[in-house]
Amino acid sequence: MPTKEEVFAKVQEALMDALGVDDDEVTPEATMVGDLGAESIDFLDIVFRLEKAFEIEIPRSELFPEDILTNAEYVQDGKVTPDGVEELKKRMPFADLTKFESNPVVQDFGNLLTVSDLCRYVESKVGA
């Protein structure tokens, strides 16, 4: 079972390879999209690399809950409803949604995920 440090090191390596960024850019607080410049296709690359590095399976809906963000039941006027936010929390216990919750604009969701969120997600998969 890998330690948290080992998980971070492998996640960092995957992000460096997938995004062409330096190790000092991949800090725990860095956001995937805003700070590291990840685009949608990069997430496919990142998921592939994490699955290989940790020998895990990553169901796409766990990391990218698009079904919630496109569900009329959970989105009104471009914002996620309180029920929707609860669903997101259930689906993504590894992500810190506090900031998003204060102004849950769907468009901003893509820039939520940080490196430490990703590490927490992997930890939950490998039992670190």
Partner: peptide, 10 residues
């Protein structure tokens, strides 16, 4: 092919 899945491959 290092990894081929439902949504693509590396």
């Amino acid at each position: 092919a290092e990894n081929i899945q439902a949504d693509g491959a590396i």
